[in-house]
């Protein structure tokens, strides 16, 4: 239906975590404008395999924008040239025919490269481990309607809970800060009544882990929110700041 497109791809190739990487240039032709960015890479890989070359490794899974796997840095931006989108939902019609596309892995010290465009993002899980939950065992919960939560509060909590953990915020930030990721979880739980018992400790522990992992500091440039596929607003960061200051400056009323 629509005219096939041609691209020059400059892709970061790195055999494994130990070896240094480099850019390789590939020419690719006959790409439908309706193909997704990942499907374009599929086509490239099929071609490379048939030529006896090593295909490009990249993370992907659901291909509908929710699993958070497909992180890559495309033409200088996390998840490519459109704001608030994942790579799998980026289509080739958003590029010019004949364009040179530079593809790099998400870069941050806590995100070591595994191969080519695949990075290890388990640092984000370790931040969650320090407190990104409500401590409740299965079976001990009261009736679901026992605690009413005003609709605006629930809606707002949802806005923060919708983070997909892709790491684009880290990749886009000039300091490689994981602030938006951490703040999204802190804010989600801070707004809900169920999150109150652990609220003070949670924010302190999660911030400490964020630093321990080696993420950079936040300097409020807002790049994260522009690239965030889940559209987590910057108010999450304000909420974390507020909670963090409050948790550290006010005396804990429950300490004997």
């Amino acid at each position: 239906m629509s005219k096939p497109m041609r691209f020059t791809l400059k892709i970061w190739r790195q055999k494994n975590a130990q070896e240094p990487g480099h850019f390789e240039t590939y020419e690719i032709d006959g790409i439908s404008p309706d193909a997704s960015f990942l499907e374009m890479l599929d086509v490239l890989n099929e071609k490379l395999i048939k030529e006896g070359k090593d295909p490009v490794a990249f993370d992907h899974d659901c291909r509908e924008g929710i699993c958070g796997s497909c992180g890559m840095f495309i033409n200088g931006r996390a998840h490519g040239p459109l704001p608030n989108i994942t790579t799998c939902r980026l289509y080739m019609r958003h590029f010019r025919d004949g364009e040179t596309i530079v593809i790099e892995p998400f870069r941050a010290k806590p995100f070591p490269v595994i191969k080519d465009l695949v990075v290890d993002r388990s640092a984000l899980d370790r931040i969650i481990q320090t407190g990104g939950y409500i401590s409740v065992n299965a079976g001990s919960a009261p009736d679901a309607n026992a605690i009413p939560i005003p609709k605006p509060v629930a809606d707002r909590a949802f806005d923060y809970a919708t983070c997909i953990g892709c790491g684009a915020c880290v990749a886009a930030c000039k300091n490689a800060s994981a602030m938006l990721f951490t703040a999204a979880k802190v804010s989600h739980l801070a707004l809900l009544p169920q999150g109150q018992p652990e609220r003070r400790e949670r924010v302190k522990k999660m911030v400490a882990q964020m630093d321990a992992e080696g993420f950079g500091h936040c300097s409020n440039t807002g790049a994260c929110a522009v690239e965030c596929p889940a559209k987590i607003p910057l108010t999450a960061i304000a909420q974390l700041q507020r909670d963090f200051i409050w948790a550290n400056l006010t005396p804990d009323p429950y300490v004997r």
Binding site: F23, N75, G76, R77, K174, T221, V226
Partner: peptide, 10 residues
Amino acid sequence: YARNDASANT
């Protein structure tokens, strides 16, 4: 990054 289009988001 080899290419970083920071002006797009900051």
